[in-house]
C-alpha cells in the first residue's frame, strides 16, 4: 500500500557511507600497532603479520560464502585439525608424499562440504546444527586417527606453504609463501563471489530462498557449493597452519568462531544476503591486528578471548544500528 520511495535528500544521505567501515578500523589498528612497535613498518614486521593472519583470512573468505547463502559453517575448525593430524599420519615423515597428501586433504574437504550441504538441503537440518554435528564428528575422527597422541611432525615440504619465506627480494626484502597463497586464493574467492553467476545466486538464496526458487535458481546446488567452498578454504587454512603450529588435536579449536567474527566485522549479514570477500579478509586482518596489539600490550590469552567475544557482539550491534539509520 504505502510507497517505499523516500525523499531525495534521504537517498543522497544514504549513499554517502560507500566505504566499508572495516577498512578504517583496520587502518586505525595498524597505526596503533606502529605506535607500539615501530619495527612493524619494516617488511619483516608487516610480512610476518600477514603471514600469521593468512590462514584466518582464507578461512573467513570461505566462511562468508556460507554466511551470505544464509547459513553457518561451524565445522571448519575441525577440518583444520583433521588436515593437520591426518597429514602428519599420512606423510609419515616422507617428504615425497606431500603432493598426494595435499590432494587427499582437498578431497576430504570436498567430501565434508558436500555432506554438510546435503544434510542442510535434503534432511532440512539447520546449518548451525548440521555443521556443529560435523565439527564434533571430525574432532573425534582426528583424535581416533592419531590414536589419541598425535605423533611425528610435518615434513618441511608440507610446511612450505605456511612457513617458507622468499628472501633477498628487492624493496619488500622478504615474501612469505603464505602471503602469495593469500593473494591468489583471496582473489579467486573474490572473483567467484563478486564476478560470477554463482556469486549473485549465493546472494539471492541468502536474501530470499523462496523468491530465488520461484525465479529458477537451483538453490540446493548453489547452497552445496557454498559449503564446499567453505570446507576447501578450511583445508587450505589447515595446510598453512600446519606450517607453523605443531601437530596436535586442538590446532583448529576456535577458528570457526574467529572466521564468523571476521565476516561480521567485514559487514556480512548473519542472516544472509549480504557480504563481501575483500571486506571479510579485512575483517580477518582486523581481528589479527587486535590480537597482535594485545600481544604487544602484554595481555594474556584469556583477555584475547574476552576481547574477541566483545568484538563480535559490538560489531553486530553497530551493524544493526547503522542499518536502522541508513536502511541498508
Amino acid at each position: 500500500m504505502t510507497d517505499n520511495t523516500l525523499p531525495q535528500a534521504d537517498r543522497q544521505k544514504r549513499q554517502l557511507p560507500q566505504v566499508n567501515p572495516v577498512y578504517f578500523v583496520l587502518a586505525a589498528l595498524i597505526v596503533a600497532i606502529i605506535l607500539q612497535n615501530p619495527a612493524f613498518v619494516e617488511p619483516t614486521g608487516y610480512m610476518n603479520f600477514l603471514k600469521r593472519a593468512a590462514p584466518l583470512a582464507i578461512l573467513a573468505a570461505g566462511q562468508v560464502y556460507v554466511i551470505v547463502s544464509g547459513g553457518f559453517d561451524l565445522s571448519v575448525g575441525s577440518v583444520i585439525t583433521l588436515v593437520v593430524v591426518g597429514s602428519s599420519m599420512l606423510l609419515n615423515n616422507d617428504p615425497n608424499a606431500t603432493w598426494w597428501v595435499i590432494a587427499v586433504m582437498f578431497g576430504i574437504g570436498i567430501g565434508v562440504g558436500l555432506i554438510n550441504g546435503l544434510v542442510v538441503c535434503y534432511l532440512k537440518v539447520p546449518s548451525l546444527i548440521a555443521t556443529l554435528g560435523m565439527m564434533i564428528t571430525l574432532n573425534g575422527v582426528a583424535f581416533m586417527w592419531s590414536g589419541g597422541a598425535p605423533r611425528g611432525y610435518l615434513a618441511d615440504s608440507f610446511r612450505f606453504f605456511g612457513r617458507y619465506n622468499f628472501t633477498d627480494l628487492p624493496v619488500i626484502r622478504i615474501l612469505p609463501v603464505a602471503v602469495i597463497v593469500l593473494l591468489v586464493l583471496g582473489y579467486a574467492l573474490y572473483w567467484l563471489m563478486h564476478r560470477t553467476n554463482l556469486g549473485r545466486m549465493i546472494h539471492a538464496i541468502g536474501d530470499n530462498p523462496r523468491a530465488a526458487n520461484l525465479a529458477g535458481v537451483p538453490i540446493n546446488r548453489v547452497r552445496i557449493i557454498a559449503f564446499i567452498v567453505s570446507s576447501l578454504s578450511a583445508v587450505a587454512a589447515g595446510i598453512m597452519l600446519g606450517g607453523f603450529a605443531g601437530v596436535s588435536t586442538d590446532v583448529g579449536i576456535g577458528y570457526e568462531l574467529q572466521a564468523i567474527t571476521a565476516a561480521v566485522l567485514g559487514g556480512a549479514l548473519l542472516l544472509g544476503g549480504r557480504g563481501s570477500v575483500p571486506a571479510t579478509i579485512a575483517g580477518a586482518l582486523t581481528l589479527s591486528a587486535i590480537f597482535t596489539l594485545l600481544n604487544f600490550l602484554g595481555l594474556p590469552q584469556p583477555v584475547r578471548q574476552i576481547v574477541q567475544g566483545l568484538i563480535l557482539i559490538a560489531a553486530v550491534a553497530i551493524a544493526v544500528q547503522r542499518r536502522k539509520h541508513t536502511g541498508r
Binding site: H203, A211, A215
Partner: peptide
C-alpha cells in the same frame, strides 16, 4: 516470493537469466 530485496534492481532483473 518475488524479490531479493537487498540486491540491486539489475540483480533482480537478471536473476533468472543468470540462474
Amino acid at each position: 516470493e518475488g524479490l531479493v530485496l537487498m540486491q540491486s534492481v539489475r540483480d533482480n532483473g537478471m536473476l533468472t537469466s543468470r540462474a
